[in-house]
Nucleic acid binder design. Structure first.
Lengths: 240, 240
DNA sequence: GCACAAGATTGGCATAGACCAATGGCGTTG
DNA sequence: CAACGCCATTGGTCTATGCCAATCTTGTGC
């Protein structure tokens, strides 16, 4: 119950706003002045300049490369919809999707995975870890757990081209409904390494539980998306 | 797998990890040492300590009050589901939901609102701006646009208790399907003022377009949720 | 006993600078 | 001419410090 309406705009935020205005309409890839030059130009310290730039990088407005410079980032936004193929969806937007297999192996379900898939702790599951790419750029890191062992899964996955297609065509597993949970997180060292983003950048973490027509869980996936290049779209029809 | 190969772990990240471990199991509200004390204890600078704490605050693990201290934050996570009433949903989780009306007025649709609602630019719409509260704490800032003018809307909204209930019971408007778009954003001065969070904190921005059975848009809403206290849940059944 | 002022404490913002690491240009050398 | 290596440039991290603002404690005067 304090007095409000006293914004007290921090200096770095003013600078951030000015930078945002100055790059409006610029070509993606255009280099902006160096941090040291901006600090001098705006009569401030490099620390303050970096704080302003850091937020613009987190929002996907700018990018930066050590030893090279800071540049205007391309405003690529990728929409990902539920129950559609990531690949098909991207292609329909004129983008070039790709997937990079990090690991595919049998594993024992830990307590968390077992609980979500309705299995006993330590049960055998198939663990599929991939990087999702758009136009060659990493967009998401995905770890999927499937109950049991799937024979010749790797070959079938490559042939079908998508996880859901492989499950349906090769194993007769049809996804009937999915439940997605979306929340925010901040990038840690592993996210930085796999997605090529900065420490502390905002992420969208999506947990997916998919069931077949009988209500039996068939997939439990954790996907970590770059927060700056990604929108999650979900449609729901009322059962009226 | 925890400490990996050679990604050059920044000092502030190590400190962040140690702080996180040290507050595990602590009672919410417990004060942690002051920034100056931590800087001395860990043989580092206050700047580095603040960077570590700032990320933990952004993740909802810690909170801080100027002049008072930094404390363990309560791990309140609120799940918000599609097509259900925010209020009913919160109550079912044992929480006390509330809503604070900021403004309710007729307005002329700008180009953006008009496009989404399928109206002409400048058409009359009802603009409803609210703060969503959980246990007295702000959770989201919401601006809803409804086509046309709704007579005695304010009274009816209060009586019905929720927007969708009011639309259905008083005006015969039934929501048939909704499309939600979820993305991340960083808190600016207005978000700080309305939601009581920190500058640069991650937000979840949800745009909702709701249609009636005839496919006519009846609601266009922009909701800004605190990223640290909120999960968005969406269920989809395949039409097979 | 209470109200209020002053000071101590704590987080908020900003400065200036040091050193490291990656990049890219440029000159030397084979 | 190509390959290599040095080095200037630029971002990445961290230190040390100062002052401001909000909060809480304490002491004083009535």
């Amino acid at each position: 119950m304090s007095t409000d309406a006293a914004p007290a705009m921090p200096k770095y935020y003013i600078l951030k706003t000015e930078l945002l205005a100055s790059i409006a309409g610029e070509q993606p890839g255009t280099l902006i002045p160096t941090e040291r030059a901006l600090a001098e130009k705006y009569k401030t310290s490099r620390t303050t300049v970096r704080q302003a730039i850091s937020e613009l990088v987190a929002e996907g407005k700018l990018g930066r490369i050590q030893g090279h410079g800071t540049f205007v980032a391309p405003p690529k936004i990728t929409h990902v919809r539920q129950l559609t193929s990531f690949s098909d969806d991207a292609r329909s937007q004129g983008l070039r999707p790709d997937s990079q297999l990090l690991s595919l192996a049998m594993a024992k379900a830990d307590i968390d995975v077992a609980a979500h898939l309705g299995l006993d702790d330590g049960a055998v599951v198939t663990r599929l870890e991939r990087i999702r790419l758009i136009d060659g750029e990493p967009l998401a890191h995905e770890i999927a757990y499937l109950p049991g062992k799937l024979p010749r899964f790797k070959a079938n996955l490559e042939k079908a081209g998508s996880l859901y297609a492989a499950l349906a065509d090769m194993y007769g597993i049809h996804i009937s409904d999915v439940e997605d949970t979306v929340e925010t997180a901040l990038a840690g060292p592993e996210d930085v390494r796999l997605l090529g983003i900065e420490m502390g950048a905002p992420l969208l973490v999506v947990h997916r539980l998919a069931r077949d027509a009988a209500g039996v869980p068939v997939e439990w996936t954790r996907s970590t998306f770059r927060g700056d290049r990604f929108r999650f779209v979900s449609r729901v029809k009322s059962a009226v």
